[in-house]
Amino acid sequence: MTSISSKSGYGALDALRGLCVVAQTPFDAEGAVDLKSVDTLAEFYFKHGAAALTVLGVAGEAPKLTQDESLAVAERYIRAAQGRPIIVGVSNAGVAQLAELTAQVMDRGAAGVMIAPPGGLKTEEELFSYFAAVFKRIGDVPVVLQDFPFSTGTWMSVASMLTLIERHPQIRVIKEEDLPSITKITRLRAGTGRRVGILTGNNAMFLPLEMGRGIDGPMAGFSHPEMLSGVYELYTAGRVQEAHELFDTYLPLLSYENQSQWGVAVRKEILRRRGAIKSAVMRSPGPVLTPTDHAEIDFLLSRLDRALAARR
């Protein structure tokens, strides 16, 4: 298992290497937050190679939570992590709400927060003004800057991102999810300013190639996190071909999960089957899997079992 510094503050984010799982938010059968399943899910993620967790992200159904629920989920993950880094998604077009949640989770021991620009920013001036306002309010808090234009609707150029990094030393990590991610990673790494970590999402669909472009690990969710941590470990050990082969073994299931919120429903169902959470429910509005969907999951998991058996 990859390990990183368990210190809060800049130390934890500066040392961030390996798998940072984007954690799900468990709900019970009635759609209430299931904090007991937070405990079992955190244990599952760390058991399968996670070095850190990101909670309250897009895949964590954060927009469906109240402010009190968001704090409760973050606090429970921080407690369950037992000193390992927890990054909390706090993105919000309202700077006051963002700053309030940031202060609350940092006070409870989060290693840092993740912030994406809100939708509707059209110019560099608007982008820079937004983040200037954010950092003025949150102060000296370690930040992961999320670049996910297909979700936010706001596109950040490499030049703009490098400017933000130089203006705001609180930015310690980039989560790069623009496409093509590999070319943007290369251009970010070619920047001559302060080095920051780069983690990647997009359901880890391009992980081995992104490793080759110089990322520090995946920040992604997948029902089989042992693949993500395994690819990272193999690649960093110089076993590049083996890393690609392991990735390919899981690729049919990975791509099946890579279908926006419907894919999150699939992931939660598989996590339920693996004993990580009690219920696979997504909070409404959200998809509900059909018998045909369940049959396809059965098929893909059986194929995966055979492929893994052949590797042994």
Rank of each mutant, 00 (worst) to 15 (best):
M1D: 11
T2D: 09
S8V: 12
Y10L: 10
A12H: 02
L16F: 13
C20H: 04
D28S: 03
E30W: 07
D34Q: 00
S37I: 04
S37G: 01
D39H: 09
F44V: 04
K47S: 10
A50V: 05
L53F: 01
T54R: 14
L56K: 09
V58L: 12
E61Q: 15
P63W: 01
S70A: 15
R79Y: 02
A81F: 10
R84W: 04
I87T: 07
V113E: 03
G120F: 06
F128L: 14
F128P: 08
A133F: 08
G153K: 01
W155D: 11
M156D: 05
L162I: 05
I165L: 10
E166D: 14
S181M: 11
I185F: 06
V196S: 08
L199M: 13
G201F: 00
N202A: 04
E210W: 07
R213W: 07
G214A: 02
D216L: 05
A220W: 09
P225M: 09
S229W: 04
R239D: 01
E242L: 14
A243S: 08
Y250F: 14
Y250S: 07
P252L: 08
E269A: 13
K278N: 08
S279E: 09
R283C: 12
S284A: 13
S284Y: 13
T292A: 13
H294D: 08
A295P: 02
D305F: 00
